[in-house]
Design a protein around this nucleic acid. Structure first.
Length: 843
RNA sequence: GCCCGGAUGGCGGAAUCGGUAGACGCGGGGGCCUCAAAAGCCCCUGUCCUUAUGGGCAUGCGGGUUCGAGUCCCGCUCCGGGCACCA
């Protein structure tokens, strides 16, 4: 493609200028008002992919725009450099994860620089850097000291063939290992947890004031999953109602259950325990033991998703196979009747008490299970007339419910709760779906957990002055085998810092979500050498004014970061900081190819360099801005290349119009502007208004369209005035300079070059203030008024923008097309929304 | 399965508060320039009926609210994201 200018030369020149002039380096003592714009730091997977390009294009646009608005914009960059791919590569090729990762960081950094996105590189953070590891470990120990970190047993995916723990991603849909093909087992390990549930209520309430997409807030609310209900005890009985005693002979045996629908207890026709429930063994009768054992084995092997969705491949045969009768019964406290107790995989041990009362008439899963097992269904809420479904989960009056009969659901819930509380059987409880955060990973390429296990003293934290604790380099990465740290001959062998006796280091590393939960704070003060960051400096930059990243991070990363910010304040590492880290969030759509997300694993990456080295970074950036709303997914298709070239063509036209047309033979006019000049001037003001508003509301695609329209208008102006008395120099210069200014954040290289050529060496478009507009010049004087008859469009009339309603209606009635449409009918109703519309509705 | 989104011309999309559906671009067609081509410039381009003027249809599907629905409500279909060890 033949271009109007030397694209590569221009882009390289300006990237050098921005770096050399330190244009976007910002310090805490900067006199300008501060703003913090942040793109989620990337996992370094090699050269940037189009998702990165999209992310950094949006971020860079905002950084440059706010800088032009007079802010000192903090725009840092770093790398989320711990993670599974580097370790997998090490197993495959033997290359050390560090050299593998460093090489990929270099690649990614080079491709980010080639986009012309600007960052304060002095602040670069890499999570595998010892200085970052050190503060990660300090934070871990603070959490430990404050009771926010604790140990508990939790299952992991264990591959017997590889003798190793697998990530969920490495377990195939049929429950086998992606590497060896062995059937993956569950194994319980003692692991570290962060007590995020202690913040459940605050994390939920804090969402209220955030300027985040509503859907992200909704997803987080649902993830936290607050539900109010009642926890109560079910007495275990024999089929005839005789109470069963605890094995040691003490009190009557009881099973605790949680429900949000105590109003439906009269309809409980059975109860269910999770397969992992500790009482399963005690409550299973000998004749049911084989069935129950089989079910437990299968449920253990399945993931929660498989269990809840019924897609566990080993349980084909549907719900009938996914539950088993224990042989025991529990007593319905309201009816005093014994109902059968089941074990079923749709009840999870991790939620509530791990056991439920089942009310098939008012719960869909219970209904489906009851149908499969031939269990009775007793309605306790009267469904609306004509309801033909199974379970009715809505409101209605209570029936078959003794003392609750006739109440609505809300009143019955309260009455039932009181009844249980009065008898000491139950109590009001708030339950959360959110679980504590399991942070232990049985891997090498992560931040080591800085504790030792001493036979005498138990868990002992390392003294802070010994940090960072770094993993040894001389480890073996074998295909399979346990974590290299656990196998290393000397790493784990140590002395107890407390008693000096023999001790073993924790050989697990931390979840990489730990690293990404506070990097935005380290960015504020990456030079701090005596603590993770100076809270005073962090207070200057925080919170992040605009956070930008993929929608796939809507829940976990963002929730963990919100938790970390609070926890850091509460353990004394971030005094005075606001408790919400990200004021405003934008989640961009994903790049899709052949209908699924573009990713390295799918091998459907299109390298940005393909375009940067040909049409240029500006054209590629413009494409990402123009292709559609930033929040929407982008389909990368066979037509995409042509659209990107179209963006390059637009930049060529801009170049020629700005630099070549003025020097051509042309009769320039000065003095008073005529109507065409004024129209152009008005269009220029409208451009500023439109682009400013569009940037504020994240509508970059329409901002680009407005620039294209403006260029079209300018070109038409030149053509038409060339044919007449000649173009007006002032009107033209104003139109082109303002276009240059508003495009500067979008396509920084070409606009910087054009500006310097028009305004002299050393002039910098990105140092110019963002243009203002005159509202008076934006106001339209004439508008098209639509006239409808009975809601159907019949005429368009050009009218004054400030036309009165009476005038508008009489103009509408005067229209021949309108009278034709009306015929001999009279308008019975007139709806006038001046100056846009008049609708005449005949009687 | 559960939670959260999305669907508009041949294609990407616009329509910001319920008021002209299709801005802008890609593709396609025609023309100018040229010995020719490339590049550039100009015009046309939802669909059907119609010589034209004009009219009908049309925003995934089926209903509803409204003077008026791409936009609001109810019920579907299909596609995508997340589901706690990919990041």
């Amino acid at each position: 493609m033949k271009r109007a200018y030397e694209v590569q030369e221009v882009e390289r020149k300006w990237q050098r200028v921005w770096a050399e002039e330190g244009t976007y380096e910002v310090d805490a003592d900067d006199p300008r008002p501060s703003a913090y714009v942040l793109c989620m730091y990337p996992y370094p997977s090699g050269a940037a992919h189009q998702g990165h390009v999209r992310n950094y294009t949006f971020g860079d646009l905002l950084v440059r725009h706010r800088t032009m608005q007079g802010y000192a914009v903090l725009s840092p960059f770093g790398f989320d450099s711990f993670g599974l791919p580097a370790e997998n590569a090490a197993i495959r090729t033997g290359e050390h994860p560090r050299s593998f990762t460093d090489a990929r960081i270099a690649e990614l950094k080079a491709s980010v620089l080639s986009l012309g996105a600007v960052y304060d590189w002095r602040r670069e953070v890499r999570s595998h850097d010892p200085s970052y590891i050190r503060w990660n470990q300090v934070i871990f120990l603070r959490f430990l000291r404050h009771g926010l970190a604790y140990r508990d047993s939790a299952p992991v995916n264990w591959c017997p063939g590889c003798q190793t723990v697998l990530a969920n991603e490495q377990v195939l849909a049929d429950g086998t290992c992606e590497r060896s093909g062995d059937l993956v087992e569950k194994r319980d390990l003692e692991q570290w947890f962060f007590r995020i549930t202690a913040y459940a209520e605050e994390l939920l309430a804090g969402l209220e004031d955030l300027q985040w997409p509503e859907r992200v807030k909704t997803m987080q609310r649902n993830w936290i999953g607050r539900s109010e209900g009642v926890e109560f005890d079910l007495r275990v009985v024999l089929a005839d109602g005789t109470p069963v005693m605890e094995p040691d002979g003490g009190a009557p045996l009881a099973l605790s259950v949680f429900t949000t629908r105590p109003d439906t207890i009269f309809g409980m026709t059975y109860a269910v325990m999770a397969p992992e429930h500790p009482l399963v063994e005690i409550l299973t009768t000998p004749d049911q033991a084989a069935l129950v054992a089989d079910l437990r084995a299968r449920a253990e092997a399945a993931s929660d998703i498989e269990r809840l969705s019924g897609t566990d491949p080993s349980a084909s045969g549907g719900l009938a196979k996914r539950g088993a009768f224990t042989g025991s019964y529990v007593e319905n406290p309201f009816t005093s009747k014994a109902v059968p107790l089941y074990v079923a995989d749709y009840v999870l041990m991790g939620y509530g008490t791990g056991a439920i009362m089942a009310v098939p008439a008012e719960d869909e899963r219970d209904f489906a299970f009851a149908e499969a097992h031939g269990l009775p269904v007793v309605r306790t809420t009267q469904p609306p007339d004509g309801f033909e479904g199974g379970a009715w989960t809505g409101d209605g009056l209570k029936v078959n419910s003794g003392f609750l009969d006739g109440l609505d659901v809300t009143a019955a819930k309260q009455r039932a709760r009181e009844w249980l509380e009065e008898r000491g059987i139950g109590r009001a409880t708030v339950n959360y779906r959110l679980r504590d955060w399991l942070v232990s990973r049985q891997r090498y390429w992560g931040c080591p957990i800085p504790v030792v296990h001493c036979l005498a003293c138990g868990v002992v934290p390392l003294p802070e002055e010994e940090l960072p604790l770094l993993a040894p380099d001389d480890v073996e990465f074998l295909p399979g085998g346990e974590s290299p740290l656990a196998r290393h001959p000397t790493f784990a062998v140590t002395q107890c810092p407390s008693c000096g006796g023999p001790a073993r280091r924790d050989t697990d590393t931390m979840d990489t979500f730990v690293d990404s939960s506070w990097y935005f704070l380290r960015f504020c003060d990456p030079w701090s050498s005596d603590r993770p960051f100076d809270p005073e400096v962090a207070r200057h930059f925080m919170p992040v004014d605009q956070y930008i990243g993929g929608i796939e991070h809507a829940i976990m990363h963002l929730l963990y970061a919100r938790f970390f910010t609070r926890a850091l304040i509460d353990v004394g590492l971030a005094d005075g900081l606001g408790r919400e880290p990200f004021t405003s969030l934008f989640t961009q759509g994903m790049i899709r190819m052949d209908g699924s997300k573009m990713s390295k694993t799918k091998g459907n990456l299109i390298a940005p360099a393909t375009y940067v080295d040909t049409v240029g970074a500006d054209a590629l950036r413009l494409f990402h801005l123009f292709v559609g709303p930033p929040a929407d997914d982008v389909d990368w298709t066979s037509q995409t290349d042509e659209v990107i070239e179209g963006c390059g063509r637009f930049l060529d036209r801009f170049w020629r119009l700005a630099l070549e047309m003025p020097s051509e033979q042309r009769q320039w006019r000065t003095g008073d502007p005529d109507d065409a000049d004024l129209d152009l001037e008005r269009a220029t003001h409208r451009l500023v208004a439109k682009v400013s508003d569009d940037i504020d509301r994240w509508s970059f695609n329409t901002a680009v369209a407005a620039c294209m329209e403006h260029l079209n208008a300018l070109q038409r102006y030149l053509r038409e005035s060339d044919a007449g008395a000649g173009p007006h120099r002032g009107a033209y210069d104003g139109a082109i300079d303002v276009l240059n200014l508003v495009m500067a954040p979008m396509v920084p290289h070409v606009t910087a070059e054009v500006w310097e050529r028009r305004h002299g060496p050393g002039s910098r478009v990105h140092a110019e203030p963002w243009p203002a507009y005159d509202p008076e010049m934006v106001r339209e004087e004439r508008v098209t008024m639509v006239v409808q008859v009975a809601g159907r469009l019949r005429d368009r009339i050009d009218v004054d923008a400030d036309i009165s309603e009476a005038e508008a209606v009489s103009l509408a009635l005067a229209s021949p097309r309108v009278s034709e449409a009306l015929g001999d009918r009279q308008p019975a109703r007139v709806i006038a929304k001046v100056p846009r519309l008049v609708n005449l509705v005949p009687g």
